[in-house]
Write a protein that binds this DNA or RNA. Structure first.
Lengths: 231, 231
DNA sequence: CAGCATCCGCTTTGATACTG
DNA sequence: CAGTATCAAAGCGGATGCTG
């Protein structure tokens, strides 16, 4: 928590969240909502446990993290973001947008957690058919599941399986992201090993909310059944 | 330059710009445009010279900083941002916005450079009277001068004196910022030692571009002469 | 003087082990 | 599960020296 000692808003912000691992801890809490210490460890591969403990304490003192004891049935401590912590979301959004091109140069040894998809999906996708009834997409990768709910003009994400998804996508997280962002056609994604089962209209429904990630749809491909697939 | 080793856009971004001092170096380059090594040192009080040199090299390798030899008359190396480096502006904007409330708790020993004002002014102010001819404001604090050009709906900032300003504001940088952002009335700013000479309509013309910083103008105060004041 | 490189003491980080 | 304790390694801050 060394300070830059500069009377500058940016420097003051970095005094609080500029330390190593800090913004990644906020990322995990934004994705997961209130969660346990071990969940954080799982989502932050490579962090030393003493560092995680220390950061959580500092973030709590800074009013960014809130510690709460879970409701009676469970005996666990939960860590969550305060409103002040949630206010960091635009920062992560812009930083992630800037860093997105760097993902291409990601090394083979890099850790990969499917739930990391949740943040870019929430940030950069939008519901291209706001009038249609809500639809649900389940993503599966690396033993994790993410539910993507599209409806009313917005896209929401949750960790875990969806009860009754309209489609299920399985495969490499990066390919799934590229597919949903419209940067990769379904045909090419399938050729690269992505499995798509269910209603493909959900796929066409999500759209990048910026003009950047242009969708490469030429002609509507043969649509599959609209019936939910088995969970 | 240690990597988090995570295939996540945010982590990749922090691999590149997450090190200590890095984003503050980008801040200086955004404010100043291409400038010399010693200018950077002056704008980054507290940085060790070996760190600055090392960071500049790393940032150059990362494609964020560009090194150019100054035109013939001057014998100096200039450091500037590449387009990729300028793309960090939204990140600094959001981080600065988040950190702004922390400025209140700034310690007495904190370093203060008037040119740091340039970034928040550029980010958060707007021209409230786009149809009026352009106006210029000169800010003076701590031996530094900043020109603020208001016109055509936008606000631009430059370092250095303005040739023919419509008004000159002198005093504590934080008070000047609060005054321009409409969070401090001219009367209170003057009571705190801020000197305002020239046309006060320029002051009423700049407006925070967000709904956050509400201007506290009740009734139009007696306006001073529109003639430029002496530089 | 501008633009570094080197050295040294200190702090932070990382890996592991251990505890209530 | 939720941390604390320990210790080696890396990074940082400050001073200084070198090169045009």
């Amino acid at each position: 928590m060394r300070s830059y000692g500069q009377a500058c808003a940016l420097a003051k912000a970095l005094d609080v969240v500029g330390d190593r691992w800090t913004l990644l801890i906020v990322r995990e809490l934004l994705i997961r909502g209130p969660c346990r210490y071990t969940d954080l460890q799982d989502g932050l591969p490579g962090i030393a446990t003493n560092l995680l403990g220390g950061r959580l304490r500092e973030l709590q003192e800074a009013g960014i993290v809130r510690r709460e004891d879970a409701p009676p049935p469970i005996a666990a401590t939960l860590f969550g973001l305060t409103p002040r912590g949630e206010a960091l979301e635009p920062v992560l959004k812009e930083l992630g947008r800037w860093g997105a091109p760097l993902l291409a140069g990601s090394a083979r040894g890099d850790a990969l957690r499917a739930h990391w998809l949740a943040l870019p999906l929430r940030f950069y996708l939008t519901d291209g058919r706001p009038r249609l009834p809500p639809a649900t997409l389940e993503l599966r990768a690396g033993g994790e599941a993410i539910s993507v709910e599209v409806g009313g003009g917005t896209v929401r994400t949750r960790l875990g399986s969806a009860p009754n998804p309209d489609a299920i996508v399985t495969g490499d997280p990066r390919l799934i992201l590229a597919l949903l962002a419209g940067k990769l056609s379904l045909a090419k994604a399938r050729a690269s090993g992505v499995k798509y089962a269910g209603d493909t209209s959900v796929l066409r429904r999500v759209r990048p909310s910026t003009a950047d990630g242009r969708t490469t749809r030429k002609r509507r491909p043969a649509s599959r059944s609209r019936a939910p697939v088995a969970g």
